[in-house]
Amino acid sequence: MANVNFRRINIDILEPENNIAPEELVPPSIANLPPASVAEIQSFGQSVRAALSRGDHADALAAALGNPPYTSSEEVKAIHLTTILEILSTVKSTDISKIVEKLSSEDRDTLIKYLYKGMGVPESHGISGVLLAWHEKVIEVSGQGAIVRFLSDRRMV
């Protein structure tokens, strides 16, 4: 077989103006968003849990999705993911469609990001079925457009 090593040579390094730094890929809509600290996201998680214990599932989810820590560290993002997974797993399966319909379309797009991210972490192995149920209900409302937006969006959760 022909030598394929030449494909591993990063030819763009030879042309400095072809290099794109990761910072340049940050979408302008979140470029000025201040990163959240661990303490902040934890206290936010507490307030969401308080709403959950009152039975305000829809409000708790909307609050958690309304303000995702896009520019924060991986640690902060992981804490927020745990909070959201907690909300998702406490909602009764019969209530899912009602809550999804109440969310704004941006919140539904954000929820899709957390669903896919949730499916990728080991902590969610017990609740994969729940995540799939949510996914089905969100796609029923938001259509395939929501999946395509997840793929193209660089605002990562």
Binding site: P27, P28, S29, D109, R149, S152, D153, R154, R155
Partner: peptide
């Protein structure tokens, strides 16, 4: 201009 969710 950029769309909020980006994409080509």
């Amino acid at each position: 201009f950029v769309s909020p969710a980006g994409g080509w």
